[in-house]
Design a protein around this nucleic acid. Structure first.
Length: 121
DNA sequence: CATCGAACCAACC
DNA sequence: GGTTGGTTCGATG
């Protein structure tokens, strides 16, 4: 099952492209409150796409502050990448600043991680 | 727990 | 057609 979108310019239904997913992911990211994170996998599941694509998508995010791509992490609690200024280190510090606690082995405590679908409710 | 490899799907070459 | 991602999941030491 693939996601379809209505393309206003072309005036027809077509399969979603990466640019469309970017818009969706932007909206989803804004649902994640401070001190809480979601995972590439849960977003991938929601959009029916490959988790690796989610990485690519959040990377295309043009407004890193407005759309908090740093609140998306790997499902095992490790941080995943960050292409913005400061890289993964900055991502880590940013999350800790927002109140996310990290265990000694460098993993985010599971209490902070929620499925993106749960945040929709 | 840590590491390994196969598998996911759209873009790009 | 093949490679490439800010990855995942299950299997194995």
């Amino acid at each position: 099952m693939t996601i379809l979108v209505y393309d206003v310019d072309e005036g027809r239904i077509r399969k979603a492209k990466l640019k469309d997913y970017v818009e969706i992911v932007k909206a989803l990211m804004q649902l994640i409150p401070e001190g809480r994170v979601s995972t590439y996998g849960s977003i991938a599941k929601a959009l029916k796409i490959n988790p690796k694509l989610v990485g690519k998508i959040v990377k295309m995010n043009d407004e890193p502050v407005i759309y908090p791509c740093h609140r998306i992490v790997k499902s095992d609690g490790s941080f995943g990448g960050y292409s913005g200024l400061g890289g993964t280190i900055f991502k880590k510090r940013l999350l800790e600043f927002e109140g996310v606690k990290v265990s000694k082995n460098g993993k985010i405590l599971s209490e902070h991680i929620s499925d993106i679908m749960d945040l929709l409710c």
